[in-house]
Structures are given as structure tokens and as C-alpha cells.
């Protein structure tokens, strides 16, 4: 690496894995100096929404305005150190893990001022789906009439988390999953993973680069294996394992959501096995027992749909432990 190479950047297009169509659309609009006033980046956690948003921020604010942010100009330097006045970031916080009306109010207070530096000003709302309704309603006013030179970028897991009125005022950019072999190559080529680790992590990632990275971490990999073993026993009807799984996620929405993904993966493998497609298993090393080994593919697919139901309920104010218990009892009792 030459010495004048930038050491770190707030974001750059080159950091993004996959999503060529979305990235091309954004780059084109920014290069032409005509970005949409509001973007909504949609897709599961770990897919690269924030990476794309940060690259867009860098590209908008970099003073050289080249196809890739330069990393050397004053704007790039300030961005990297969180010192640029042209970017306002909002993320969920507090006990309830929400974005409140006060946070949106502060954004509006800042936007009322003229820009201090640069051609653009960007508001980055991370996990915008966690805005409560009053925060979303307050944001509407800004989405309808943002000040000149302002771009608002929202990221969210589900479009359903946002009010129709908010969604309709944004250009929606849906991110699809990245092909598993592309994730595997990416892990080897840019993240320095060994070929075996990369294959396992990519298979477990379900096409989500962020998940694949987490799986590379040996500790996370170990915890995941333990949870998988626990869940296979629970799904086979072992009462003690059901109790343990429930107590693990009892008051933890995020933990429950992660465990639901594991159940989903096991169901997916069970379906693949029931129809004799063993090549694309997520967990080829896990042997299934009980209903997962015996039920026909169609019944398993019904349960897979039930999980989406449960995931939806989890976003509301429902007790995670109760949801997990109900699901495990239902499948294991089949």
C-alpha cells in the first residue's frame, strides 16, 4: 500500500458485496448531482444496508466528487472522525430500543439551518423501522419538503415497519440476498478467511454478508453450534431443552429473532432432506430427529411459514419467551 493511500474511510462503494443494481442506481444519481431527496434501503440485518448508506454519504460529501470518495480531502477526513457537520445520524436507543419523536425533532432543528459546509447534507436514519409512530409522523413533514441540498437515507428490515405515508415519500431500494458462493469468495478474498471456514460461514449466512462475517468469529461459531444442538433436541420434543431455549430468549427480542432464524435454517434443511436435495444444506453436520426427520415436506413448509408469523409478532409488544415456547411445542408435538 502506498503511503498516501487513505487508511480508513467513512464508507466507499468498494466495501459493498453484491447489490450491483441498487449501487449502480445510487452512484448514477449521485454522480449526476441529482440524488432523490429520500431513500429507503430495505433488507434483512447484515445484508449491507448501512455499508451502502455510508458509501452514499461519502460519495455525496467528498470534495473531489470522483466515482469513489478520495479519503484525503477535508470532508473525507472529517467524516471518518465523525466531525463533519453535513451528516446527521439517528439510531435507536433507550430501554425500548426505539427512535423517538425528540430525536426526529433534533434533526429538524438542525435542518432548519443553512448548510455550514459542502454541497450536500445527509440525514442517515439507521433502523428507521424502530421509529415509533409519532416519530414517523413528525418525520413526514421533512420527507415532504426537505431543505435544498438535503438527502435523507433510511434503512429498515421490513417495509411493514414503516407507515405507508413514510414509505411512499422515499425511493425504495430493496436489497436481495447475495449468492452464497459470492459470499464465500468475498470471505476468502477480502476478509482473509480460510477456504473451509469460508464455506461453512457462507452456507450459514443464507446470503447475508454480515451474518457470514459473524460466523467467522470462532466464539460466535461455537455459540451457534451449541444453540443448534439445543434446538434440534427441543424440536425433537425434549422438554428440558425447550425450557432452556425459552429461558435463553425470555426477555430478549433480538436473541429470539436470532434463534428463530436458526429454527428456520433447520426447517429448511429438513425440507431439503425430505425431498432428497442434500447438496445445499445450511447445516450438513447437524443430524435431525423427531418431526423434523419424519414429517413430509409440505407440513414442514407450513411450519416455515408459521415462523414468519412469529417474526412479525415479535416486532410488536409480544413476550419473546412465550412466542418461542409456543412455536417449539407446536413443531415438536406434530
Amino acid at each position: 500500500m502506498s503511503t498516501d493511500e487513505p487508511t480508513s474511510l467513512f464508507g466507499r462503494w468498494g466495501d459493498i458485496k453484491g447489490h450491483e443494481r441498487v449501487v449502480a442506481a445510487l452512484r448514477r444519481a449521485i454522480a449526476a448531482g441529482r440524488p432523490h431527496h429520500a431513500y429507503l434501503l430495505l433488507g434483512p440485518r447484515g445484508l449491507g444496508k448501512t455499508t451502502i448508506a455510508r458509501a452514499a454519504v461519502s460519495a455525496l460529501l467528498c470534495e473531489l466528487g470522483q466515482s469513489e470518495p478520495c479519503g484525503r480531502c477535508s470532508a473525507c477526513s472529517k467524516l471518518t472522525q465523525s466531525m463533519h457537520t453535513g451528516v446527521l445520524q439517528v439510531e435507536p436507543g433507550g430501554k425500548a430500543n426505539t427512535i423517538t419523536v425528540d430525536q426526529i425533532g433534533e434533526v429538524q432543528r438542525q435542518l432548519a439551518y443553512r448548510r455550514l459546509e459542502g454541497e450536500w447534507r445527509v440525514v442517515l436514519i439507521h433502523d428507521a423501522g424502530l421509529m415509533n409512530d409519532s416519530a414517523q409522523n413528525k418525520l413526514l413533514k421533512t420527507l415532504e419538503e426537505p431543505p435544498d441540498g438535503t438527502v435523507i437515507i433510511l434503512t429498515a428490515v421490513h417495509p411493514g415497519q414503516l407507515l405507508q405515508t413514510v414509505r411512499s415519500r422515499c425511493q425504495k431500494l430493496g436489497l436481495g440476498v447475495v449468492p452464497v458462493d459470492a459470499v464465500e469468495r468475498w470471505l476468502v478474498e477480502t476478509k482473509g478467511a480460510g477456504p473451509t471456514m469460508a464455506r461453512v460461514a457462507a452456507a450459514g449466512s443464507r446470503g447475508i454478508p454480515g451474518t457470514a462475517l459473524t460466523l467467522l468469529d470462532p466464539e460466535m461459531g461455537e455459540e451457534r453450534r451449541e444453540r443448534l444442538t439445543l434446538l434440534t433436541r427441543a424440536l425433537a420434543g425434549d422438554a428440558g431443552s425447550i425450557g432452556e431455549a425459552v429461558s435463553l430468549v425470555d426477555r430478549d427480542k433480538l436473541g429470539c429473532a436470532e434463534m428463530l432464524v436458526l429454527v428456520q435454517e433447520l426447517l429448511r434443511d429438513a425440507i431439503a432432506r425430505s425431498v432428497g436435495v442434500e447438496a445445499s444444506l445450511v447445516h450438513p453436520d447437524v443430524s435431525l430427529a423427531g418431526p423434523l426427520a419424519t414429517l413430509p415436506g409440505r407440513a414442514l413448509a407450513d411450519y416455515a411459514l408459521r415462523i414468519e408469523d412469529v417474526q412479525e409478532k415479535l416486532t410488536r409488544n409480544v413476550h419473546p419467551g412465550g412466542l418461542m415456547e409456543g412455536l417449539l411445542l407446536e413443531i415438536s408435538g406434530a
Binding site: 435542518l111 432548519a112 443553512r114 435544498d148
Partner: peptide, 21 residues
């Protein structure tokens, strides 16, 4: 200026950002 109003007296300058709109 385009973005700020500067009030000064003696060796002191106080500036505020202008509002949009």
C-alpha cells in the same frame, strides 16, 4: 455571508448560522 451572520465589536466576533426558508 451565504451561511452566517457575523456581529463584531472590537476584538470579538459572534456569528450565527442563518436559517433556511
Amino acid at each position: 455571508s451565504d451561511t452566517q451572520a457575523v456581529f463584531s465589536r472590537g476584538s470579538t466576533s459572534f456569528s450565527m448560522r442563518l436559517l433556511e426558508g
